[in-house]
């Protein structure tokens, strides 16, 4: 409030105020830290807790057991969590690869080339990424039922492409326009064609951007629930759907600890991925939104 007085105030007061400000920063940071991580921590604690102590509120690990994880993968209870994991991996993996294959070229053109209707194309891509999933589910449900695709993998991959491809194009476009394109110019002066310059100079440079985009695309597809819950069957069910409709040992009783264990299995790889590539992911998430 009183920034002006800082200069005129005695040194000790200024220092005290500075310490007070940094103290408040740390306090706020701690609050944010706890708010973001506490629920996640609670999930892990519960995942490792004996079913009999589901609602124990001790804030640290007690009654530790692997039972919940056994339950999650137990076929006798009608859970096919291993299969669900593979399904998610397959659907998200194929979606990511297809989206990148198509997205890289489009993003290159959008970031590098001058052409008519560029504004329109970008608008269409952005609009597509904001498109509501329910508007696709109804017609696709009928279409896939008619042609016998209901419960197949392509029935999940195709609608996923509808939101992953725009995300890919958008993110890659913003990444690409920050790259050192002078090198492409030099390559062309040295006698490369535009295609050669793209393959030999730009591709290696673009690899980190493509990799980051791949992570974002994979996470988006891996976390998808609405489409998978409507268009998959027992064979193709993905993890998000499996967790939402999880079967426990007792009927009509929510198997909280097992669900938390399942959630932990699904989330830990993502969290590790996010922590390792934190900087890149933040750059990818915010690319295009500013500047």
């Amino acid at each position: 409030m009183t920034a002006v007085s800082i200069d005129s105030a005695p040194k000790t007061a200024a220092r005290r105020r500075e310490r007070w400000a940094s103290g408040r920063t740390y306090l706020s940071a701690a609050l944010i830290f706890i708010w973001c991580l506490l629920p996640f921590y609670w999930m892990i604690v519960t995942a490792f807790r004996d079913v009999g102590y589901t609602f124990d509120s001790t804030p640290f690990f007690t009654h530790v057991t692997w039972d919940n994880f056994t339950t999650v993968f137990s076929e006798n209870l009608g859970n096919h969590f291993g299969r669900n994991l593979l399904n998610s991996l397959l659907v998200a993996g194929v979606t990511t690869v297809v989206a990148l294959l198509f997205g890289v070229f489009a993003a290159y053109a959008l970031s590098r080339l001058e052409f008519r209707f560029k504004f329109l194309v970008l608008g269409f891509v952005l609009g597509a990424s904001m498109f509501p999933g329910v508007a696709l589910v109804t017609p696709l449900f009928q279409l896939f039922t008619n042609i016998g695709w209901y419960g197949t993998y392509q029935a999940l991959i195709i609608p996923n492409i509808s939101f992953v491809l725009p995300l890919t194009v958008y993110t890659l476009t913003s990444f690409f326009r920050e790259m050192p394109w002078e090198l492409e110019e030099s390559a062309r002066i040295d006698g490369c064609t535009q295609g050669q310059a793209f393959r030999k100079v730009i591709m290696p440079l673009a690899a980190p951007a493509v990799f980051t985009t791949a992570i974002l695309a994979f996470i988006a597809s891996w976390n998808e629930f609405l489409i998978a819950s409507q268009l998959s069957n027992e064979q193709t069910k993905t993890v998000t759907v499996a967790i939402a409709y999880f079967a426990g040992a007792q009927a009509h009783q929510e198997p909280y600890t097992a669900v938390m264990a399942a959630g932990t299995v699904v989330t830990i790889p993502l969290v590790i991925l996010v922590l390792v590539f934190q900087r890149k992911i933040v750059a990818g998430l915010t690319a295009g939104a500013v500047k």
Partner: peptide, 15 residues
């Protein structure tokens, strides 16, 4: 801060 973002919404709901 990225942790809640990375968790699938279905898991968030159950949590």
């Amino acid at each position: 801060v990225l942790v809640p973002w990375a968790i699938p919404t279905a898991v968030t709901a159950k949590l």
